[in-house]
Design a protein around this nucleic acid. Structure first.
Lengths: 338, 338
DNA sequence: CTGAAAGCGCTTACAG
DNA sequence: CTGAAAGCGCTTACAG
């Protein structure tokens, strides 16, 4: 069933049928009615390929999800997809490994798919610096600040990771902790974790505490399994830490499990702070003290920014989303630590 | 840049360029080389819309994810998407509400997108019965058995929910539990939970225990938040249960949190069993005793089944995936329960 | 308000 | 092995 069949069946030309289908104003009501009757009767749906070919139209929004097992991204993704759907846009989603090059992938996908816009959930700024100039589509990067890159078509939306990390360390220090470990992330300075480490360092300095990354930091990927083993490594090399700052909630969950397995209770024996504020952090035992990034808001704002850029050719913007230190049950004051 | 430009630049006809691009055998090596040189130089990528239009080709595989917050589906989804990508297929993903009509959504998406095949992650058999006859695409339904529906183009892959649920109840009974509550699912008999409830009922009967659904079951959606409130409702109406079978791990996690908040320790005061075997179940405190469904396997097999049906026109098949009762730390014998 | 016609960028018999 | 040409299903000036 094509537009041609509808034309024949309704007695009008394909041009007129096309106009009816696209709600073109200059069609008589009578004609519109008759054509639509046939369309409805046959449940006709125009061929998107032909339409797009003719209109040189882009199809859909492509979303790169960097890193699997990332609950925050899963959260944002779902909401973004729903919002896109409400706006009549389709989402093509690609899950990438935490170490994959999302920009190269996007370039490939862009050629094949010709999407209208790109959304990146996480990413490595280094990859953007290297090859994002080959992308001219409106794009938005979430949970990373891309302002320093200066690409005119790349907006970004992020919490102030440095400030948030500082606040976490400040808080732990205020609770009497002096020996604090940091779990997660990649030492490379282009990774999402770098600014968080920077925030930690500045807080340690402000509080006149030494900060020896080799001794206090244990890098790991963003998953429960990696958090689990990283926590064990940290405790092995630095058994006297009284608090751990995990760079994501899933890492924190893995770490808490590891600590329990080592016979250390949280928070009685050791405190743990997470990052992200995923739903799980409200249901874990103990509930997590964590930095909450507002997934709903990020999804909403991210989609808005992207759609604005697509439809109104607005310039790229870089926004900071407020964060919130949510108090759970995973932190104790040191004097209470046995 | 179109195939026409490449033809002009390389000195061959568009037909020849097309043949080179599609690895058609009858092109001379010399020609192939020359054309490819131009293609590479300009980083040319053919227009998918035109290609698809011409080839009447379907694009991509559409995946409907039924219910948000479902960790098992998130797991399967990621793996399925990777496998599809390896096979050169693209995944268009739609997250649907747990109560949405996935079949209607698929029908709409099929018209607009013309995918090659459909994958359903969860679903309501009633919706399939009502309207799946309007879909003629190769499809596969995961975590549900669609054999009784008899659609020739709908395969399915599921664990034996009834047997698994029976085994859980048998196990709890063997540990001395007589007052067992069931959390989650929808009482409607077309829902994923129905066969699990049936399994419970048959086990209760076999063990000569009464089973009063009104008193022992508390329906809820598949999320931590709903598991949390459902557990509270269950305890309120039936305070003497010594064990709870949650119809999914996320429900179990919510339930454990609720029990803790009510001052009941798991498993010391009350035992909890989950369902799904998501990674979190290995890292929660306590670790969950749960029915493990193999997400990797289901993803792999599901994709295989779908691709086979698409390429080889094989008939629909309905397979049962083995399950496994994984022992964690969330179940105790009643004599030890205080 | 409507029709006839060109053309979007490809693929693929058909000839040679 | 290669080219010329038809045609996939649409949209949209251009006429009238």
């Amino acid at each position: 069933m094509t537009i041609k069949d509808i034309a024949r069946l309704s007695g009008f030309s394909v041009g007129t049928v096309s106009r009816v289908l696209n709600n073109h104003p200059d069609v008589s009501d009578d004609t519109r009615e008759k054509v639509m009757a046939v369309v409805r009767e046959h449940d006709f749906q125009p061929n998107t390929n032909a339409k797009h070919l003719k209109m040189q139209a882009k199809s859909s929004i492509a979303i790169m999800v960097k890193g699997t097992n990332n609950m925050l991204f899963a959260d944002i993704l779902e909401k973004a997809q729903s919002l896109l759907m409400e706006n009549g846009e389709e989402a093509v989603i690609a899950y990438l490994d935490e170490d994959a090059n999302e920009v190269e992938h996007a370039i490939r996908l862009t050629r094949e798919r010709r999407p209208k816009g790109l959304m990146f959930l996480g990413g490595d700024l280094e990859y953007f610096r290297e090859s994002f100039d080959r992308i001219s589509l409106p794009s938005v990067l979430l949970t990373h600040n891309a302002s320093e890159l200066g690409f005119p078509n790349l907006s970004s939306l992020t919490t102030d990771d440095t400030a948030a990390a500082s606040k976490v360390i400040d808080y732990l220090v205020s609770q009497g902790h002096k020996s604090i470990g940091v779990l997660g992330g990649n030492p490379s300075n282009s990774q999402i974790s770098h600014s968080r480490i920077v925030g930690c360092a500045s807080s340690f300095e402000k509080n006149s505490l030494d900060f020896d990354p080799d001794k206090q930091c244990e890098p790991c990927r963003f998953s429960m399994a990696d958090g689990y083993s990283a926590a064990k490594r940290l405790i092995a090399k630095n058994p006297d830490v009284t608090a751990i700052f995990a760079l994501s909630d899933v890492i924190a969950i893995g770490a808490i499990r590891a600590l329990q397995d080592l016979g250390r209770q949280v928070p009685e024996d050791i405190s743990v702070v997470g990052y992200d504020g995923v739903p799980l952090s409200r249901y874990s035992v103990p509930r997590l003290t964590t930095v909450r990034q507002d997934a709903s808001f990020m999804a909403k704002r991210g989609v808005e920014m992207l759609l604005h850029r697509i439809h109104n050719k607005r310039p790229a913007v870089h926004e900071i989303v407020p964060f919130q230190l949510v108090h759970g049950e995973s932190v104790d004051r040191t004097e209470k630590i046995t």
